[in-house]
């Protein structure tokens, strides 16, 4: 019993003294996350480069956005350190492409993303975020289409992402321009795989055009757009609904616009 009281008192003493230490401690400015030369880390880590890269990744994301600091301005350098240690670690690339443009480092984000595509494990997030960066920050539809297409072809890409990427550039006011980009790729590429890919996209946009034309005819006949595409067949406007070359279903909205079904 006596021992128990002694131990309990000592543990309580430790806890209380720690509490008061934290309480009375003056607020020092935050210490920035470590930014060490990659070669130095590689010399010291006994070949455990992936673990070192993981450690640097955690310390970067835990500290880089510390309130009241501007460490985030160095984010691209921290991400470079993480990926110099393990160039196959894919998420830091994707994270960089996603976050850096918001911090006004658009070109750095693109550079990081393109390196990720060359060196990292296959990860759909890198081309997908690159496509969104090109679309939002660079207003460059050609590159956005290119990277959306890479994202669609990446292993383990979620269906929802595929559908969103396929709908990119498919709204009627920019569809012709998007289709023209694919037609130019089809006509200029010497690579059979790229040509086949372009052919599928051209077909995809042509089917959407066909379905929208048919729904306009339906509206002329009935006064309303069809609430489902099947009505185009039952209304004898089309013999059948064409199958999307990428294997998804088409849908029509209340304004007669056709796209890939999102869910």
């Amino acid at each position: 019993m006596r021992k128990f009281i002694i131990f309990s008192t000592l543990i309580l003493g430790v806890t209380v003294s720690q509490y008061f230490f934290d309480f009375t401690r003056p607020k020092y400015s935050e210490v920035p996350p470590m930014l060490l030369p990659t070669q130095t880390i590689k010399l010291a880590d006994l070949g455990l480069h992936s673990a070192a890269s993981g450690l640097m990744w955690i310390q970067t994301i835990q500290n880089i956005f510390a309130p009241g600091t501007k460490y985030y301005l160095m984010l691209s350098e921290y991400l470079k350190m993480v990926n110099d240690l393990d160039s196959r670690f894919s998420y830091p690339y994707a994270f960089g492409v996603l976050v850096l443009p918001d911090l006004k480092f658009i070109d750095e984000a693109i550079e990081i993303g393109e390196r990720g595509l060359r060196e990292a494990d296959s990860d759909w997030r890198i081309p997908y975020y690159l496509a969104t960066t090109y679309h939002i920050y660079k207003h460059d539809r050609t590159n956005a289409i290119k990277y959306f297409d890479i994202a669609i072809r990446t292993a383990n890409v979620p269906d929802s992402v595929k559908r969103i990427a396929l709908n990119y550039g498919a709204v009627s006011d920019i569809r012709q321009q998007t289709k023209q980009i694919w037609i130019s790729i089809y006509e200029t590429s010497g690579d059979e795989i790229v040509r086949e890919r372009a052919r599928l996209y051209i077909l995809h946009y042509e089917y959407i055009e066909l379905l929208e034309r048919a729904s306009n005819i339906y509206k002329q006949k009935t006064g309303d757009y069809p609430d489902s595409l099947d009505k185009l067949v039952s209304g004898r406007i089309l013999k059948e609904i064409p199958k999307d070359p990428f294997g998804f279903e088409y849908m029509i909205d209340s304004r007669g616009r056709v796209s890939i079904k999102i869910n």
């Binding site: 455990l48 993981g54 990744w57 955690i58 994301i61």
Partner: peptide
């Protein structure tokens, strides 16, 4: 703590 890269961290730290 790794923003969704749990398995990579678990495997690299575990083996290390």
């Amino acid at each position: 703590l790794s923003l969704g890269e749990d398995l990579f961290i678990i495997r690299s730290f575990g083996l290390a």
